[in-house]
Design a protein around this nucleic acid. Structure first.
Lengths: 236, 236
DNA sequence: AGCCTCGGCTTACAATGTAAGCACGAGTAC
DNA sequence: GTACTCGTGCTTACATTGTAAGCCGAGGCT
């Protein structure tokens, strides 16, 4: 052995476990991005060698899958607590739960959104079978026909996906690269893509508007639009 | 005339060029997925050594960026030809152009959709500055206020992103893994996630409905909904 | 000629995922 | 007690990746 006994980690838990690994992976992703997650770095963070993780995890894919399952897992339990008397309330609660997830874990959310789902009809970000089952069953209980419930599932999924993936991307990017600093002294505006901004007068003029963060209003407004549309389909 | 590119790697230009590399990369992604693209495999496909690519490409990131630029590039030129007399026509043309892209390149589209954009206000899948400029300028020309144009840009982006990312994922998954075959003899239904399907009666019952492919109708219906919403915002 | 530049090649290295098998400590049976 | 097993983490090893550094030959200039 080359080196001995230097415990950088306080070994918070002597014993390894799948739970522990998945939690550490999520934490790592949260503050370094999914790209930066390697089996070795994760293992080091747990005070352990890389290969030890393979006792609890099939491989990296399995680990990432476990991370997204973990995120969606405690979300469904939270959903059960919120009881409403109309389907709009249910969908609103669901939307806000998923959004909370995206906002709290902007670096991890792309995984939830873009990992190939287990079945082709499992559409991100509602990726777990139980969650989809709850979704469909709830709408059926509220009087949706089967076709209507499935259509609602599709509309709702793509609404959530588009809205939240974009929002997570923005929030994730705000944290990531620590802005290498721009020492450009010329008149080019800040940001990054100053290249062909000269040929894009509309963009340049509207840049302040474009840069505003209206995520909240946008999310609520779109949600309302989706719900309205569903309601219209229901009565028609 | 969309494709029908006759690319025989051996015969044509012995000379390398960025164009050639990017095209080959796109082709490779189209039929093997972005995951399977490595500098070495791409170089081999071009009859060349891996390091030779670096004369024309900064690195893998640059290459991928070039691929998405190439996809969006000829799209804007196509857009210029389609002239309409109302903004709905423009947005419909744009939507269908982007969708064609997603359908023709389902494995490449996730790149367009999820790569971190050059500027935070550049929302996928409308990632190029010129394209966004065209978008905004066109709406302004049609009488949108600046706020309305920007709001439309946001709604439209997230609509396209959600809808097309899901559609591309489905179409991409249909081709990918060549279905390893399941020799499970028990009564569990096919697909893959037969695990907890027993606890999901609604999903099981609706599985045929869920598995139907209604991408076309879904896309058109959602598009109409978005346009209606924009029209309502306009007049209000 | 000599020389220079350019385009592709060779070599090399560090980081990654992971297969195979080792080491050691705690039960448990005798 | 000893021996045997087994779970758990470690060591080693290898193939694959992106890419930095430098080589080398061919064609065009002066």
């Amino acid at each position: 052995m080359a080196e001995h006994g230097e415990r950088t980690e306080h070994t918070p838990t002597r014993r390894l476990s799948r739970q522990l690994i998945v939690d550490a992976a999520l934490a790592h992703i949260d503050d370094s991005g999914a790209q930066a997650l390697s089996m070795r770095s994760l293992a080091q963070e747990l005070g352990v060698e890389a290969m030890s993780l393979y006792r609890y995890v099939e491989g990296k894919d399995d680990l990432l899958e476990a991370v997204v399952d973990r995120l969606l897992g405690d979300m469904r339990s939270r959903l059960d607590e919120e009881l409403t008397e109309h389907w709009q309330g249910f969908l609103q609660a669901l939307a806000h739960e998923v959004r909370r997830l995206a906002v709290e874990h902007p670096r991890a959310f792309p995984l939830v959104a873009t990992r190939p789902p287990a079945a082709p009809w499992l559409r991100p970000p509602l990726r777990s079978i139980e969650l989809v089952d709850t979704f469909l069953q709830t709408l059926l209980d509220f009087g949706f026909t089967e076709e209507q419930a499935v259509r609602a599932y599709r509309s709702f999924s793509s609404y959530l996906l588009g809205q939240l993936l974009l929002e997570a991307a923005v929030r994730g990017a705000e944290i990531s690269p620590a802005e290498p600093l721009d020492d450009e002294g010329d008149g080019a505006p800040a940001g990054d893509a100053a290249e062909s901004l000269a040929d894009a007068p509309a963009v340049r003029r509207l840049q302040p508007l474009l840069s505003e963060d209206r995520s909240d209003q946008e999310f609520e407004a779109s949600l309302e639009a989706v719900l309205d549309r569903l309601a219209r389909e229901l009565s028609q």
